[in-house]
Write a protein that binds this DNA or RNA. Sequence first.
DNA 1: CGGCGCCTTAACCGATCGGTTAGCCCGCGA
DNA 2: TCGCGGGCTAACCGATCGGTTAAGGCGCCG
Lengths: 315, 315
Amino acid sequence: MTLTQLGAFVLVARLGSVRAAADVLGVSEPAVSKAIASLRQHLGDQLIMKDAAGMTLTAGGSRLIAIASQMVSLGAEAEAAVRAANGAPAQLRLLVNSTISEFIATPLTEAFTRHRNSTVEASSGVATIAEMRALLADRLADVALGPAVPVDGDRNLITEPVLRYLVVVAAAPQKRFTGPPRTWPWLVGPSGVDPYGDIGRLLRAFRVPDQRISVFPNETAAWVAAADGHGVTPAVSTLLHSHVRRGELHVVPTDVTPVQGTWYATTLRTDRRTTTSTSFVNFLSTPSAMQLMCSPGAGVPPSRFRPPVYVTIWS
Amino acid sequence: MTLTQLGAFVLVARLGSVRAAADVLGVSEPAVSKAIASLRQHLGDQLIMKDAAGMTLTAGGSRLIAIASQMVSLGAEAEAAVRAANGAPAQLRLLVNSTISEFIATPLTEAFTRHRNSTVEASSGVATIAEMRALLADRLADVALGPAVPVDGDRNLITEPVLRYLVVVAAAPQKRFTGPPRTWPWLVGPSGVDPYGDIGRLLRAFRVPDQRISVFPNETAAWVAAADGHGVTPAVSTLLHSHVRRGELHVVPTDVTPVQGTWYATTLRTDRRTTTSTSFVNFLSTPSAMQLMCSPGAGVPPSRFRPPVYVTIWS
DNA sequence: CGGCGCCTTAACCGATCGGTTAGCCCGCGA
DNA sequence: TCGCGGGCTAACCGATCGGTTAAGGCGCCG
């Protein structure tokens, strides 16, 4: 299975014709035909079949095309990226949990870019706490920001506290929830399903069973549902501020909350990390960064809006 | 540049040693060394250099590793996916805009899965309207759901209306905005930056300049900011319902709103699309699907929560 | 200084990749 | 029925890939 073969396959599927693909590639028809034949044999699947109206993909073929077309475009991207790397601005790849991604990552990376006079290109991506360690160790990211990454003795990673905050439980003001917390309906964002995150830990501490937890596509949606009286929601208190001030939510004290949490920055150990990483970690302790992390994020103008980074749609 | 070479490179970068990588791969040391040498020459970059403490990546190398490690794992995934395709449940890859993704996609795919007694695996991914056409034509997705995809004469795609709705402009009840709409502060979700979407079109119709638009990471966050009095927000009226009912937002009439919009389902033409796609499109017109699309999405239990699909973090 | 790890290069070799031309099969329309 | 366009297979060929062994450079430690 080579990239050329995959490229031929993708093109044939796109164009619905071996001939057409061969023309586009500027090679003879048998060259393309043979590439497909090799793939077929290697994978033990017909992949694509000629029929009445053009070509149709087999089940295996439709799985393959999604993956293959990514690989092909990544191949082109790799060449371009490496060739363009010299003279390009330095990169900072920041790894965050979904809460930080929702409220803080964009303003923070933007502020850092400004702080460095645009000599750096910062981007952020969402990962679970458990993934962060591997991604850092494999050099797939430069800095991880979020609840403590369990580095247990990995001498290559260093971790340092960045910000303390309080995790509180909130609900609509008029709602009263009685009985033990584990019987309440809990409304959480994606970070609620991360077992290493503060909110996941809180839910476990209360022994909330799965069927009493509703996961929303983002934290704000969970808060809105809570304001609507559908349940209680755990949250970082500073981020919840405007909801509380408007009277949509109020803080419900429990046995264990408010509870303090800490966000940490984790990087490769000092002598291995890039100067950009170091610069970013230092930036995190500046007053302006601190302030950004404490106040909920605002919108950004369209020109600076960057949707969550992802290569393509399906794996 | 072959997959084996990239695999060797990734492993060396991960392990920080040619020797170790060779051991892991079960080949001789020069084999790995030569693979890297070929990459170096092909890409014209040192990629990785030996130094005091292990290895460090060059700028080009750190670009490459992110891409290469994806390609390698995609390669493995491709083999597995094709081999597993026979006997596996059918797939439905649904393409949606960010609004539908936020409120409707999860309950909808889940309902469809239940409707088909779990004989189908439905997943959804976000794309801009402009991308949808190409993704469908390239067989990278099965059905697109959202505002009209401009198929302009592409005989391979068919598009049919699914749901009519109203786009309204909303603001906090006590706030009054005067002057022409283009001078108001507009708060939108990611779908606001899609030029083919209803909201993007609305902003263009009003000639709102970029600096008066704030883009939020999700629609709910934009609504909350509007409720906080920071501006006005355009939205699909049915989705806004609970915010209006709670009195946080009220509808602001303008010259052009309420304006009707329509969501369409677009697929390959009937004789080319999969039976699963056909089944899904039919499902969309059932009362239960209709109802799902009209009422804002609720949370799902953790076991059924699936974060937005993406292969890996950075491109 | 010598030995030892570790990386690299050189020389070599078989497999296969990617391409060609030639020829066959098949469905389809004149 | 014949031509024809499109796809597949066969036979062939050069390049290169992926692997080997052997040998050389280099830093480090005893």
